[in-house]
Design a protein around this nucleic acid. Structure first.
Length: 140
DNA sequence: GCCAACGTTGGC
DNA sequence: GCCAACGTTGGC
């Protein structure tokens, strides 16, 4: 199983909204970046991801699961853009801030640190476990 | 609210 | 196919 990171903003799509969707999940639409799209095309059912809030919040607040593999983005007729569906798995006991991540020597290679603008990113197994531990949250 | 970094577009 | 111009993102 692979791990990922999905970026959102509270004002656009909040963690509360994601949780409220329950197991039905939600289409991760609106991504208009080839790199991010390509990562979504690689995703498999059951893959897990962090739910990160950019801008004001700048922290990881929850864990999500891919509940539909890549399909066309319903918000556009342009067939270049695909997206997956994700559902909330659990909230972080303690959210992990970008500051904490940047301050941790083990996480200096995280895409979030190296390429902060990429809205869908891969996360290594190692990074996954470290961040979950920092958030006192079950990684499985 | 500023601006650096990055991605995309389009003229040549 | 290069690269200047432009638009967007997101940390600060």
């Amino acid at each position: 199983m692979a791990y990922w990171l999905f970026k959102s903003e509270t004002s656009t799509w909040s963690w509360d909204q994601q949780v409220a969707r329950g197991d039905a999940g939600e289409e991760w639409d609106g991504v208009r970046n080839y790199q991010a799209r390509n990562f979504m095309r690689e995703m498999k059912l059951g893959d897990r991801g962090f739910f990160y809030l950019s801008q004001k919040d700048r922290k990881i607040v929850g864990i999500v699961e891919v509940c539909a593999e890549a399909h066309s983005d319903s918000t556009t007729d342009d067939d270049r853009w695909d997206c997956v569906d994700i559902k909330a798995v659990r909230s972080f006991v303690t959210p992990v801030t970008l500051d904490q991540i940047k301050a941790d020597e083990r996480l200096t290679d995280m895409v979030l640190v190296k390429n902060s603008r990429l809205s869908v990113q891969p996360v290594s197994d190692c990074e996954w476990r470290i961040v979950c531990e920092m958030g006192q949250t079950n990684p499985d």
